[in-house]
Design a protein around this nucleic acid. Sequence first.
DNA 1: AGGTTAACGCAACCCGCGTTGCGTTACGCT
DNA 2: AGCGTAACGCAACGCGGGTTGCGTTAACCT
Lengths: 216, 216
Amino acid sequence: MTAPGPGTVRPGGRTARVRDAVRAATLAELSEHGHHGLTVENVAARSGVHKTTVYRRWGGADGLIADALDRAAAEPWPVPDTGTLAGDLRDLARLVLAGLTDPAQEPLTRAFVLAAAHSAAAARALHAFYARRHEQSAVIVERAAARGEVPAGTDPAEVVRTAVAPLYHRAFITGEPVDAAAADRAAAAACAAARAGALVAPGPEPPPRGRPRPAH
Amino acid sequence: MTAPGPGTVRPGGRTARVRDAVRAATLAELSEHGHHGLTVENVAARSGVHKTTVYRRWGGADGLIADALDRAAAEPWPVPDTGTLAGDLRDLARLVLAGLTDPAQEPLTRAFVLAAAHSAAAARALHAFYARRHEQSAVIVERAAARGEVPAGTDPAEVVRTAVAPLYHRAFITGEPVDAAAADRAAAAACAAARAGALVAPGPEPPPRGRPRPAH
DNA sequence: AGGTTAACGCAACCCGCGTTGCGTTACGCT
DNA sequence: AGCGTAACGCAACGCGGGTTGCGTTAACCT
């Protein structure tokens, strides 16, 4: 698709140089001018690569964002491990908070979400990005279940979502402040809901035979 | 701004007719072609109003969306009243679910959120829209507090957000399915968190002198 | 009824994104 | 070293969104 195919291809010097220049220019343009400022012509001008080359290899601005998302998904993601579910969720929410407020990350996060809204390629990349993060973060809930902090069968993805969704909601929907207090409260709410057994996985995977539901 | 000012103005026949035609065409275009299909020229052609008139009165596509948002905010919003917090939150989440899945509402909801992302006017309108909804929904939590279902001082906005944010998160961030099961689980999680006292309002307004925090 | 003027219609224009066809470079292979 | 070809550079074009200046309509007031 976007990356050079596996046939008789030339991943050699010039191609790689062009690719890196365009990728760097894409991130720079996004950071400076945001999503609606990301145009192929600007990226081409900044990178020194010709406009048509960018259109051929990436297909347009959405393709540039999809490529950046694929790279971001491959980067390591420091899953918190504080010893308690409350602490882990708190740190997890703080990581998301940074993605939505840190001047270096915020434009990228917003651009990724917006690009996914009107580009199938970017949407696929965005969903894959978050799917990977969720499965990496699942270990937080699994450790908590092993410690007995939450009932067996608690859905890790649902706990993570409950902890971070309010931050995205503030940033993209209501426009309310996104700060440490909001992050901590969202994490605490997710922790409380998980402890109360409100986030057990439904249907096909019942808790592996034990107490069906801990008394609240 | 967008609406005709209060000075020596002519809200009379022709102006009102043009306004209604453009508004109807805007909603129709949004429903059919979505957000990125909403162009001033299409709205002008469909409404029979000239292109320049639309630009003058609304300023562009974002202004059309901001106007539609202002109208949507004024429409009545059936706040659930089932007698229990769990039931109210469940129905509230189902209302949001409808806004994100019903073919008649979904394009509008998405367009509103996207327009706010790259237009200050649309952002103001969107934030006002949700601020109004939150304050209307607050009565759900207030009734629950009066019934003793949740601790005094529970933040209504935070409870509502916890119940609905996961749905927006699925729709706009992760691309996971948005269905009744997701709505019910989000509502149940918000209910559990509120009951556990994890959503008491911070700072300036302490609970009006009672138990400072219910033992968990 | 008639005048005033806000609001609208109209035609032409500018600009920038995206596309196309062809010539040029330099990577990879023998 | 020398060839074949994938990948890139280049110039020109089409097209649609957005803007401008001026003429026309019809709402409001006396």
